[in-house]
């Protein structure tokens, strides 16, 4: 598979990219920091051992002018693109987001406007070649408005709605949208937060995501238990959510 990854330098994106490299997929990495991208590309090349090079280009969810050039470079390097994976995004606690207006703006912009803007560009590229897979990390946080994730959850709820619409609109044209909804995953993004039940490590989560891409699953919860947990949480009455701590 030939795959473009936005967000491979860290966390879950790094985990999925490694699995892809180790099984021989061709990769092109997009991200903010060129030296960080270059080091990550080297890591993936060494793990792959195929002798192929992993290309990189600068791309920032907070700067939509970078999207087209970055995707141009990716297409030039890979030739045909089979899949585009978006794992980049920002996270901050509700307390921090309430206190810091500029952090709040950045997070809302990156997770909603930026990600959707990038997906629009990515979708156009895939459709122009007859289709392909667009796999995007949303979150279980977008399933129900809750106390600790009011704003972050709202960005992910919006993103999920967008991706569902994209699937409805372009499935028949060959676009395969894969919405991933991770629960709490132990990464540097979640470091220091209190771990809820069903917390997971990157490796099994990355494996599930890769399987979802391979099988073109429209929607996947990782770990899978979250599908049931969130079904229940969505059904809880409003009065209960006002009292609940989660």
């Amino acid at each position: 598979m030939k795959c473009v990854v936005l967000g491979a330098t860290k966390g879950i994106g790094r985990g999925v990219a490694r699995l892809m490299a180790e099984r021989g997929d061709s990769l092109f990495l997009l991200g903010r920091n060129p030296s960080d991208l270059a080091a990550t590309a080297k890591d993936l090349e060494a793990r792959s051992g195929s002798g192929g090079t992993v290309g990189t280009a600068a791309c920032d969810l907070l700067d939509s002018s970078t999207f087209e050039t970055a995707l141009d470079q990716a297409e030039k390097h890979l030739g045909h693109v089979d899949a585009i994976l978006v794992t980049a995004g920002l996270f901050a606690t509700q307390d921090d987001l309430e206190q810091d207006a500029s952090l709040r703006d950045r997070l809302m912009h990156a997770n909603f406007c930026g990600t959707i803007g990038f997906c629009e560009a990515a979708k156009d590229r895939l459709l122009a070649k007859g289709g392909g897979r667009l796999c995007v990390l949303s979150s279980v946080a977008g399933e129900r408005g809750r106390k600790p994730i009011v704003i972050y959850g709202a960005t992910k709820a919006g993103l999920t709605a967008y991706l569902n619409g994209l699937d409805a609109r372009h499935h028949e044209n060959g676009l395969r949208v894969i919405v991933v909804k991770p629960g709490f995953v132990r990464t540097t993004m979640t470091e220091g937060l209190k771990e809820p039940p069903f917390s997971a490590d990157v490796e099994p989560v990355a494996k599930s995501i890769l399987k979802a891409i391979d099988k073109e699953q429209a929607e996947v919860y990782v770990p899978g238990i979250w599908r049931f947990v969130m079904t229940a949480v969505r059904a809880l009455p409003r009065g209960f959510m006002r009292k609940a701590k989660f």
Binding site: A39, T40, K42, D43, A46, R47, G49, T187, T188
Partner: peptide, 16 residues
């Protein structure tokens, strides 16, 4: 533990 990238590998001579 989060800084776990391979930075260089010489497949011929085994330098990592």
């Amino acid at each position: 533990t989060a800084a776990d990238r391979i930075l260089f590998f010489d497949e011929k001579n085994g330098i990592l």
